[in-house]
Design a protein around this nucleic acid. Structure first.
Lengths: 135, 135
DNA sequence: CATAGCTCCTGTAGCGACTACAGGAGCAAG
DNA sequence: CTTGCTCCTGTAGTCGCTACAGGAGCTATG
């Protein structure tokens, strides 16, 4: 049995975040010591690590909840997991696309913006009714 | 003079967001009609449009505040604007990089996860102490 | 055995950038 | 005059934490 500090170290989840996940019902409530301190089993720490990895992969908490429950099920539904992963991939690709468009726009604006002129072409463009750069 | 609905249409900023920007002091408070309704000038609408474009470019409100004040200055400082744009480019590139790493991790996990097996390799990997995929 | 300094507890508020009401008032057209 | 749209203020919710405040317990050293 591990205190929350150890659980935090072993899982990589900040102490305050662990308590937050517990409040939100994402992870089960651990047992408590006589003095009321949380005591985590290796299994519970594995769940925290799982949540951390999923968060790092960009999954929202609601999806992680589903993933955890799928994991608890007998004969976990690999199909559903794969489908959620693919949804997540689509979302990530959309984000990358939009960031790349954004980068192109900013680069073009930034390139137009050279020192020495009294007025700033970048600000002018952003302020104008019809922008020179699509966003 | 335009009501908030028109200003919203012309600027592309939602009505509630316009009021929010006003509360936060990002845009100046417009005049009011006798009945207390906000009335926007073309100039104020241009500012809203500017804020919208900057937000779409990923600038946080704090930076936009600075950009707006630079724009109001006599002989706006193109150098400062360019430097902020370049900071923003760096941040965008970092985000793209991290999303691309994430995508690779998810693709590899998803590929391992095939239908028909009773246990799910993706969940197994994410739950295990030493993951098969770095995130 | 006392003290110091760490960890832990609960509860609440803050972040950024909105979004979504509730509950009311004005305004324009038929 | 009524219907239905727009607008008003104020407050609370979103997401995923993070940062206190104010206290209690636990451990190592003198």
């Amino acid at each position: 049995m591990f205190t929350i500090g150890k659980a935090s170290q072993k899982s990589g989840v900040h102490i305050e975040t662990i308590r937050y996940y517990e409040r939100e019902g994402l992870v089960p409530k651990p047992d408590r010591s006589a003095a009321g301190r949380r005591l985590y089993t290796a299994d519970e720490i594995a769940k925290l690590r799982f949540v951390k990895r999923c968060r790092d992969l960009g999954f929202p908490m609601s999806i992680i909840q589903t993933l955890l429950s799928l994991n608890d099920e007998q004969g976990r539904s690999c199909k559903e997991v794969k489908s959620m992963a693919e949804d997540q991939l689509v979302a990530i690709n959309a984000k990358i696309d939009s960031l790349e468009r954004l980068r192109a726009a900013l680069q073009s604006l930034s390139a137009s913006c050279d020192e020495g002129t009294s007025s700033c072409p970048m600000l002018d463009s952003l302020m104008s009714e019809a922008p020179t750069v699509p966003v």
